[in-house]
Computed example of a mutant assay.
Amino acid sequence: MQNDPMRSTVLSLMQEGAKHLLTSEAKWRDQLQDAVIDSFNTLNDPAAETAIRRYNMLTVMHWANSVLRDPNVPVEPFVDPAIRLQIREQIRQGTPETILNGYRAAQILAWRAWMHLAFNLSSTKTELEALLDFSSEHINTFSQSCVELLAKMIEDERVEYAHQSSDRQYEAAKAILSGSVRDPKMAMHELGYRLGQTHQAIIIWSREPEVSAGALEAAADRVELTASGTSPLRIMAKASTAWLWLSAPVTVDVLSSVVKEGFEIAIGRVLQGLSGFKESHQSALVTQQIMLQSKQQHRVVAYDQIKLAYRMLQQIDFAQFANETLGRLCQAPADVRESLRVYLAEGANAAQAAKVLGLHRNTMNRHLERANDLLPEPLNSQNRLQVGAVLDALYWS
C-alpha cells in the first residue's frame, strides 16, 4: 500500500468496520462467546467460562475502540484484572492452558467475522485486498501481543503460586519434623502428600556454592523417576538442598546410577505413618551428617550403612573403646585397617575382599597378617564382631 490515497481509504474503512463492531448486534458476538465452550470443557467450571467470555469480548471492543481513534497505530495488548484472577485459579487447578485455548478459539472466530464484515465495507477488489492485507497484519500484531501478555501473566502467576506452595509445604514439613504439628490433616493438605503411607526420606545436596536451582531440581527429578510408588513429596529446603519423601524404597545402587557429579544423596530408613515421616527424615539427616564429616568420598549412602558407626561414635568413651579393641592397629596405615574391615564385611573371605578393594591376593594376605599382629589378641570368634564394628565406625569418622 504505497500510494497515499489507497492508504487513506483503507484507514477510513478500518474505522467504519470498528464502528460497526461496537454498535451492531451481529451474530458474530454469540459465535465468539460459543467458541469458549468449544475450546475446553466448561461444564464443571462456569467461573472460567464467564471470565474468558468476558475477556474475549472486551479484547475485541478494546481493539475496535483503538482503531476508531487511530487505525494507523498498533493497539496495546488488553489487560483485564478479572482474567488475572482466573489465571491464578486455573493454575491452582492445574489447567493454565484453559485461558490461552479460549482466547485462541475466539481469535479465529473474530478474524472470520472481520473478513465477513470487510466484504460488506467495500465491493472494489483493489480496496478489499488492501483492507484485508492491512487489517490482517494489524490484527495479528495485536493478537500476538495479547498472547504474549497472557503467557507472561500465566508464567508470573505460576512462579508465584509455586513459591507460595513451596513455602506452605516447607512450613508444614517443619511443623511435623519439629513435633509441633497441631492438625495432621491440615498438614497433609498443605503438603499434598499422604502421611499414612510408607516413607523413605532422601536428602539431595551439593557442596558447590554456585549450584543452580535448575540443576538441583533436575537431580531431584532423576531420583523421583527411579521410584515406583505414588507421587513423591519434594521440598526445596535450601538453595543447595532438596528434601524428598518416597512411598517406595530405592536402593543405594539404583541412586548411584543416576546421581550426577556435584551432588550427594543421603537415604533414610523405610518407615510408616506420621511418625515414620519424621523419623525417616531424621535418619537421612544423620546420614548426611556422617557423609559431611567423613573422609570417605561416597556420593550415595543409606542410613543402614552408617547406623552402627553413628551410634558408636556418639559414645563419649569411643576412643578408649577403639584403643582397647584394636590396640596398635589404631595407628596402622589406613590400607591395612581397610583390608581387615572389608575382609570382615565380606564374611572373612579374603579373595572377595581383594576383589572389592582391587588388590592382589598376596597383598591382601600381607595386610591381614600385619593387622593380626597389631591387634591386642589374634582375630577370633570372640573379638571378630567388636573389631569389625570399631573398624566400621573409624571408616565413617
Rank of each mutant, 00 (worst) to 15 (best):
H367K: 06
R222E: 11
A173L: 04
R222V: 06
V342I: 15
Q93M: 12
E264W: 02
M115G: 04
N323V: 07
I154W: 03
L128A: 06
S257D: 13
F263H: 04
T230Q: 08
N101S: 13
A218S: 13
E224K: 12
L11S: 11
E346P: 04
S257P: 01
P333R: 06
Q169H: 10
R299N: 08
L177F: 13
L357M: 12
S143T: 14
F40A: 09
F119W: 01
I99C: 02
L255I: 06
A201G: 06
K125Q: 13
A47D: 10
L340M: 15
Q282G: 02
S339P: 01
R234T: 14
L271H: 03
G102W: 05
H20C: 04
V300R: 11
Q272E: 13
A48K: 03
I290A: 08
K295I: 11
E369S: 11
V254E: 15
S294Y: 00
Q352N: 11
M57F: 11
R53S: 04
S145D: 15
I202W: 01
N323D: 10
R207G: 15
Q315H: 14
K355C: 05
V223Q: 02
S165F: 10
V342C: 12
V356H: 03
R361A: 08
D80Y: 00
Q331K: 04
E190W: 13
K27A: 14
L292V: 05
S283C: 01
Q289H: 15
K355L: 12
I83H: 04
E49I: 06
K19R: 15
L326V: 01
R384N: 09
T9Q: 14
R112C: 09
L271C: 04
S66G: 07
R158D: 09
L285H: 05
A162T: 13
A219F: 00
G179A: 03
A82N: 07
A389V: 01
V286W: 05
S178I: 11
L225D: 10
E369C: 09
M14G: 01
Q297C: 09
Q296D: 10
S8Q: 15
F78Y: 14
I265E: 02
V258Y: 00
M291C: 05
S12F: 09
T59Q: 07
L285D: 04
N349H: 06
R234P: 07
S275G: 03
M364W: 07
K295D: 12
G102L: 13
L100T: 13
M6V: 15
D253H: 12
